[in-house]
């Protein structure tokens, strides 16, 4: 259980989040939706300790981790899979996966990851920079899974992927949840995210516009006005 309480975050003088509170219950998929620049990625970066908040707290399993460094947060089992994949292009697929296990120091998750994404097994010795976009996204998720997270923070996993690949990646996300993982899912593709999410939040310009059941947001007008620029 991760909870974010009254978060204010700014980049220099530019505010990114204002008074945002989010609950991520165990064994659930929590979708964080909103248009570009709404602060979705900032929220995940704050939870993983990469960005420091001005105000507010991040609490994991009852402990305040607001000021813990990113490495300590990974060791607590909260692992961030950043937007834009960020695979290491000059590493092979296998080396990328090994880096994912850096904080653990064991490769126990390797078999499960390769079973989930068989294409990675075929490409173990290939440089990550030569993979297709979809393969790189699978590698980025697989690399995050190597740390055996209890909570996975997933940023835009569908970005720039063909529909068939998106389907495969979302099937994997659902399977991870069913196996007991907690997932915070940032997505631009709202319909897709709401179809798999248990809970949903809607961010617009750094402020929370909706918090509740995913199904309630799916039928709501809020979503349309948010994406079409209304307030």
């Amino acid at each position: 259980m991760v909870s974010v309480q009254n978060l204010d975050v700014a980049y220099g003088r530019v505010p990114a989040l204002h008074d945002v509170s989010v609950e991520i219950p165990d064994r659930a998929i929590v979708a964080v939706l909103g248009p570009n620049g709404a602060g979705k990625s900032t929220l995940l970066k704050t939870i993983s300790g990469i960005v420091r908040p001005r105000r507010g707290r991040v609490v994991a399993d009852g402990e305040d981790v607001t000021h813990a460094d990113p490495a300590a947060i990974v060791r607590r089992g909260i692992v961030h899979c950043p937007e834009g994949r960020h695979v290491f292009p000059e590493f092979t697929v296998e080396e990328n996966l090994r880096v994912g296990a850096y904080a653990r120091g064991d490769l126990d998750a390797m078999d499960a990851v390769l079973e989930m994404f068989p294409v990675l097994r075929e490409r173990l010795r290939q440089l990550a920079g030569t993979l297709s976009g979809g393969e790189q996204q699978m590698l980025a998720i697989g690399r995050a899974l190597m740390a055996r997270p209890r909570v996975l923070l997933l940023d835009e996993p569908s970005l720039g992927l063909a529909p068939l690949l998106v389907e495969r990646i979302f099937a994997a996300i659902v399977r991870l949840r069913d196996d007991g993982m907690t997932i915070a899912l940032v997505e631009q593709n709202a319909a897709l995210a709401l179809a798999v999410a248990d809970r949903a939040y809607l961010l617009v310009a750094g402020r929370l516009r909706f918090a509740g059941e995913a199904s309630a947001l799916a039928g709501s007008e809020l979503l349309h006005t948010a994406y079409l620029g209304g307030t």
């Binding site: 990113p70 990974v74 899979c81 960020h86 590493f91 880096v99 850096y102 904080a103 120091g105």
Partner: peptide, 24 residues
């Protein structure tokens, strides 16, 4: 080596390195 991979990870993407639990 593990250390060398950490070096390269920090070189290629500080965000991804931090997300992997590497202290940048």
């Amino acid at each position: 080596t593990r250390l060398g991979r950490a070096f390269a990870a920090v070189r290629d993407s500080e965000i991804a390195a931090a997300a992997m639990g590497i202290s940048v």
